[in-house]
Simulated assay, not measured.
Amino acid sequence: MQFSLAGILAVLSHAVPPFLPLILAILALLVVAQLVGRLRGYRFTDYHCRPAAIIALLAGVSTLWWLPRLTGSQLAFVATATDWAALVAAALGVALLTWLVLHPLSYLVRGPRRP
């Protein structure tokens, strides 16, 4: 099987547009959460919140169930190593995005912790 950049871009040009509003909404939420948190004193390395990490992990694991359904597929169709790599990469991406949104929001709700 031969892959070309033109072929990959052709597939993306058909696959991305239905999800573009969702992608833009998630990106806007990420930027707003980070910006508001930073304006109120949030710093990535100075604040730790275990519940945000646990929720992000659960969101990433849940991706293995809901992503095939969202795309009109089935988990049984995920058969090759490339399919599994794409699904795991999507799960890691969802977990990271969830954590990047929830971490500054938890700072805004709970406030800074002082030892």
Rank of each mutant, 00 (worst) to 15 (best):
M1P: 04
M1T: 13
Q2E: 15
S4E: 08
L5A: 11
L5R: 07
L5H: 05
L5M: 11
A6Q: 13
A6F: 08
G7L: 10
G7D: 10
G7T: 01
I8T: 11
I8P: 01
I8E: 15
L9K: 06
L9S: 11
A10F: 02
V11F: 12
V11D: 14
V11S: 12
L12A: 09
L12V: 06
L12M: 10
A15R: 06
A15E: 15
V16T: 06
P18S: 12
P18M: 12
F19K: 14
P21F: 10
P21K: 11
I23N: 04
A25Q: 13
I26K: 00
I26V: 12
L27H: 09
A28Y: 08
V31T: 07
V31N: 08
A33D: 13
A33N: 09
Q34Y: 06
L35M: 11
V36I: 14
R38V: 13
R38K: 13
L39E: 00
R40C: 07
Y42D: 02
Y42H: 04
Y42Q: 02
Y42E: 03
Y42T: 05
Y42R: 01
R43I: 06
R43Q: 08
R43W: 10
F44D: 15
F44G: 00
F44P: 00
D46K: 00
C49V: 00
C49G: 05
P51M: 07
P51S: 09
A52M: 05
A52L: 04
A53F: 11
A53Y: 08
A53R: 04
A53N: 03
I54P: 08
I54C: 05
I54G: 03
I54V: 10
I54Y: 09
A56Q: 03
L57N: 01
L58F: 02
L58C: 07
L58K: 00
G60M: 04
V61G: 03
S62M: 07
S62G: 14
T63H: 04
L64I: 05
W65P: 00
W65K: 00
W66T: 06
W66Y: 13
W66M: 07
P68L: 09
P68V: 14
P68Q: 06
R69N: 03
R69L: 15
L70Y: 02
L70S: 05
L70D: 00
T71H: 14
T71E: 08
G72V: 12
G72E: 10
Q74I: 05
Q74L: 13
L75S: 12
F77D: 15
V78K: 00
A79K: 15
T82L: 07
T82Y: 06
D83I: 11
W84S: 04
A85M: 10
A85C: 09
A85K: 05
A86F: 07
L87W: 04
V88C: 02
V88I: 15
V88N: 01
A90P: 12
A91Y: 02
A91D: 07
A91I: 04
L92S: 08
V94S: 03
A95E: 02
A95N: 02
L97H: 03
W99E: 01
W99G: 01
L100G: 01
L100C: 10
L100Q: 08
L100F: 09
V101A: 03
V101G: 01
L102S: 02
L102Y: 02
H103V: 12
H103E: 14
P104C: 03
P104E: 08
L105V: 14
S106W: 09
Y107I: 09
R110F: 10
G111S: 04
P112T: 01
P112D: 14
P112I: 11
R113L: 11
R113F: 05
P115L: 08
P115G: 07
